[in-house]
Computed example of a mutant assay.
Amino acid sequence: MTLTAEVKKLTESKPFYAVAGVGDYAVEKLRELPEQLHKLQSRRADIAKDLPEKARVYAGKAEGFAKEFPEKARGYADQLTHRATEVYEDFASRGRKAVSKVSGEAALELEEVSVAAKPPVATPAKKTTRTTKAKA
């Protein structure tokens, strides 16, 4: 199989688009990270002040959750399977959009480069006759 056929086969697969979608999502979230970090740093004092009380509350909830866990685990597993399928489809759709956008931009750039790289077409020059005058 030729390289072109392999590339075409790859780019027509859903996993390819899902990976592209994950990458696009990761870039989006990484761009948001500095702003979120700044917000958390500004709330650092409030978070530290409330931490001991929240830790006690969550510890109590954890005990209750641990008792119910075996029963709920089956339900969570079913929900997780369904949600994972949805997320996979969303990433594949997002990846298709990202790849198509990048492919379109690349195609436009390639077209511009090819137009700029075309050698000029020679046009036939008009024939002129020159006469030279000798100075006497």
Rank of each mutant, 00 (worst) to 15 (best):
M1Q: 02
M1Y: 03
M1H: 05
T2H: 03
T2V: 00
T2R: 07
L3G: 01
L3Y: 01
T4E: 04
V7E: 00
K9F: 10
K9L: 07
L10A: 09
S13N: 10
S13C: 02
S13I: 06
K14H: 06
K14C: 06
F16T: 01
Y17F: 06
A18T: 00
G21A: 05
D24L: 08
Y25M: 11
Y25L: 10
A26K: 12
K29V: 11
L30F: 07
L30D: 03
R31T: 15
R31S: 14
E32F: 07
P34I: 03
P34A: 01
E35F: 00
L37P: 00
K39Y: 01
L40F: 05
L40N: 03
Q41S: 02
Q41G: 02
S42V: 08
S42F: 00
R43K: 13
R43V: 05
R44V: 02
R44G: 01
A48M: 11
A48P: 00
A48V: 07
K49E: 10
D50S: 12
P52F: 08
P52Y: 05
E53M: 10
E53G: 12
K54I: 13
K54H: 09
K54T: 12
A55P: 06
R56P: 02
V57I: 14
Y58F: 15
Y58P: 02
Y58C: 10
G60L: 13
G60P: 01
K61T: 10
K61V: 06
A62H: 04
A62L: 15
E63S: 09
F65G: 05
F65E: 14
A66M: 13
K67D: 12
E68Q: 13
E68H: 07
E68S: 15
P70D: 12
P70E: 10
A73H: 08
A73S: 13
Y76E: 09
Q79P: 01
L80I: 10
L80G: 13
T81I: 10
R83K: 10
A84D: 06
T85D: 11
E86A: 06
V87F: 09
V87C: 06
Y88C: 05
F91T: 02
R94V: 05
G95L: 02
G95V: 03
K97M: 12
A98H: 08
A98M: 13
A98W: 05
S100W: 00
S100Y: 01
S100A: 11
S103D: 04
G104M: 09
E105V: 11
A106H: 04
A106S: 13
A106E: 07
A107V: 09
L108D: 12
E109Q: 15
L110A: 15
V115W: 08
V115P: 01
V115T: 09
A116W: 01
P119N: 05
P119C: 03
P120E: 11
A122M: 07
T123P: 00
T123Q: 14
A125S: 13
A125C: 06
K127M: 09
T128C: 07
T129Q: 09
T129G: 04
R130T: 14
T131N: 12
T132V: 15
K133G: 03
K133V: 11
A134W: 12
A134L: 12
A134V: 13
A134D: 06
